[in-house]
Design a binder for these strands. Structure first.
Lengths: 221, 221
DNA sequence: CTGGATCCCTCACGATACTG
DNA sequence: CAGTATCGTGAGGGATCCAG
C-alpha cells in the first residue's frame, strides 16, 4: 500500500481500484482456492506450486489489508494459521466463476508441466454448471480425476461441490488416464460424447449409468 | 505467447488461462475502454495516460493474438488504425462491469493525480445501474463531469450510455466542481442525497428537476 | 512440520526519446 | 498518428534458510 503510488493506474475508477486489489499476479488464483474453503498457508502452496513463497505471503498480506482475506490463528490444539475470505472477498465468487468460464473457452490442451488441482476443479465444475439443465434433478456424484476425488450434489438447480469422496453417490465417474482433465473438458465442450468416452475407455463409471447423459448435460463450456 | 512458458501459472484451469490472456497489467483497462467503442491507438493513450506506449502496443498485440481484439486499418479517407473487441472480447462486458462494481465499493477518495476519463465513467454508470429501478421509465440524460459530457438513455430497464451531449435530454446534471467524481460516487453510494448535492452547490441541474430523485435511484454502489 | 523471511537474479514494466 | 528503440528499476521467479 505504502509503495503503491508509483505502480497505481492513476484513475479514479472502480475497475482500476479492483485491479489494485486483486489484479496483481497470482492474486485471483489465491482467491479461487479460498473460494472453495478456508486454507492454510501450506494448502495454498500445494494448490499453487509455482508461486514463490514471498509472493504468496506478500499477496496474503495485501489481500488482508484490503479486507478480502481474513487471517485467523486457531486457538488450540493446533495453533495453526488459517486464511479465509471475508464477505467482501466472497463477493468475488461470481466474477471468478465467470472469468474461469470465459477463459475455458479458449483453453487448449495442457502443457507438459500443467497441473490440475482439486480446488481448480471444484471451481471449474461450478463455473460450467447450467442450473436450468438440472431443474428437476436431485442426485449425488463422485468424480475421480487422476488422484483427485470430488463430490458434487445437485438439488433442483443448486450445485454444491467439494473435495473428497461421496460414499452414497448415485453415479461415480472415473477419469482413468493421466489426461483426465482434457477428457472432462472435451465432454463439457461437447467435443466428445459420453458414449465415446466410455467406449474408448477414457472414463469408467459406477453406480447408475443412466445418470451419465444428464450429468454431462448440466455442464457446458 | 512464445515466451509465456516461463511466466505461465502452470495450471490447466480456465481462470489461469483467462489470466494469461487478460490478467497482465493494464489489459483489462484497455478492454474497458474498448467496451465503450472502437478506439484508435491515440484514443487509448489518452484514456490511459499512465500506460507506457510499449506496454500498450505489447498488450494490443497479445490481445489480438488471443482473439480478444481486432485491428482494422480503415481503407480511406483516413487509412487510420482502429482497435475493437471481437465477439469473444465483448463477452468480457459483464465481468468488467462486475469487477468495476466490486472495486467501487472500497474506492476511497481520489488521489491528487487520479483522473477520470469518459470511457471509465461510461462503464461506471453501466456497472452501477439497477434495471429494476427503471422498469417503467423512459428518459434521456446528459451528464457533465468536469469537462466530460456523457449521454444516457433509459428505456424500460435498458440503459445506454455514450460519450457526448444529448441535445433533447430530459434532465441535465452538471457536476460543477473539480471533484465531481467523488460527488457522483457519494450520490450513488447514498452518502449524499440529491437535495444535499443541490443545496451545497455540488451539482446543478437543468431540464425537469423532478427526474433527479429517480435518476439517483437507478444507480447504486 | 508449518509459516514464513531472505537472498539473488532476471525480465516485465515504466519513462523517455525517436521514427516511418 | 502509430508505433519502435533504448535503458533503468523493481516486482516476480527460484532457492535456501530460519523460528515456533
Amino acid at each position: 500500500m505504502a509503495d503503491m503510488g508509483q505502480r497505481a493506474y492513476g484513475q479514479y475508477c472502480g475497475l482500476a481500484h479492483a485491479l489494485d486489489v486483486v489484479g496483481e499476479r497470482w492474486a485471483l488464483l489465491i482467491v479461487r482456492d479460498l473460494l472453495v474453503g478456508p486454507r492454510r498457508y501450506t494448502d495454498l502452496r500445494r494448490g499453487l506450486p509455482r508461486i514463490p513463497t514471498n509472493v504468496l505471503s506478500t499477496r496474503l498480506k495485501a489481500l488482508e489489508e484490503a479486507d478480502v482475506v481474513w487471517r485467523t490463528v486457531l486457538p488450540r490444539p493446533q495453533g495453526s494459521v488459517v486464511y479465509e475470505l471475508t464477505d467482501y472477498g466472497r463477493d468475488l465468487d461470481g466474477i471468478v466463476l465467470a472469468l474461469g468460464k470465459w477463459g475455458a473457452r479458449t483453453m487448449g490442451d495442457p502443457g507438459p508441466d500443467d497441473i490440475v488441482t482439486p480446488d481448480s476443479l471444484v471451481m471449474a465444475l461450478r463455473s460450467t454448471f447450467h442450473p436450468d439443465a438440472a431443474a428437476t434433478l436431485r442426485a449425488g456424484y463422485e468424480l475421480r480425476i487422476g488422484d483427485i476425488v470430488l463430490n458434487a450434489k445437485v438439488d433442483h438447480g443448486i450445485l454444491e461441490v467439494g473435495v473428497g469422496p461421496l460414499p452414497d453417490a448415485d453415479l461415480i465417474i472415473d477419469g482413468v488416464s493421466g489426461d483426465a482433465g482434457p477428457v472432462l473438458k472435451a465432454l463439457f465442450a461437447r467435443e466428445l460424447t459420453p458414449a465415446q468416452a466410455l467406449e474408448t475407455g477414457a472414463i469408467r463409471i459406477g453406480g447408475n449409468p443412466g445418470l451419465l447423459a444428464q450429468f454431462v448435460e448440466m455442464f457446458r463450456i
